[in-house]
């Protein structure tokens, strides 16, 4: 099958590749662009380990064809940290033991990153509802929720100070 020319802006960098139309965004990111932080878990859009940010929205990259994403701006887990090191969410997940095997973590953090932009000071209930598209088998979510809530208040405090 003929390949398509796909152009994406990934983590701020313009990238281009050739891909068959049937290739999924997650496959293009992992196999063609070498960004293996985004994982594959269920393949039917239930588990959310493939979550990336596309044009300012969280999406499940196992259920988006690369062809659909052509021209899009994508942020993956590899693009969350800044020049000054880990993002507050990343350090908060570590600080509050919000991960164990690490497999859901990139999708979890990438989703939480967008959630806190949509709602900078969520309640616990809003975090649980807003993270409902991401499954974790290890943590029971309690420390993930804690990590996100702590990150939210830390980010707000940082913003207030600036």
């Amino acid at each position: 099958m003929k390949k398509m020319h796909i152009e994406l802006t990934v983590n701020g960098q313009p990238m281009e590749t050739l891909a068959e139309p049937r290739e999924l965004l997650v496959h293009v990111l992992r196999e063609r662009l070498g960004l293996t932080g985004t994982h594959i878990g269920c393949e039917t859009s239930h588990c959310g380990v493939c979550t990336v940010d596309m044009n300012g929205k969280s999406v499940k990259s196992c259920t988006v064809f690369a062809a659909q994403a052509n021209g899009a701006t994508i942020t993956t887990i590899e693009g969350i940290a800044g020049a000054d090191g880990m993002h507050i969410l990343q350090s908060s997940f570590r600080e509050h033991h919000g991960l164990q095997c690490g497999y859901c973590t990139p999708g979890m953090i990438t989703r939480a990153w967008r959630l806190l932009q949509e709602n900078p000071s969520p309640t616990e209930e809003e975090v649980r509802f807003g993270m409902a598209g991401n499954l974790c088998r290890c943590t029971g979510y309690q420390n993930i929720v804690k990590a996100i809530l702590h990150a939210a208040s830390e980010m707000s405090a940082k913003e207030a100070a600036e």
Binding site: R30, I77, I80, M86, Q90, R94, E95, T105
Partner: peptide, 21 residues
Amino acid sequence: RKRVEDARFTQGKGNYVDDIK
């Protein structure tokens, strides 16, 4: 003690079998 594994997992730098090329 905070986990030493977490720096790589939180930044998408884990190395799972399907990441091997």
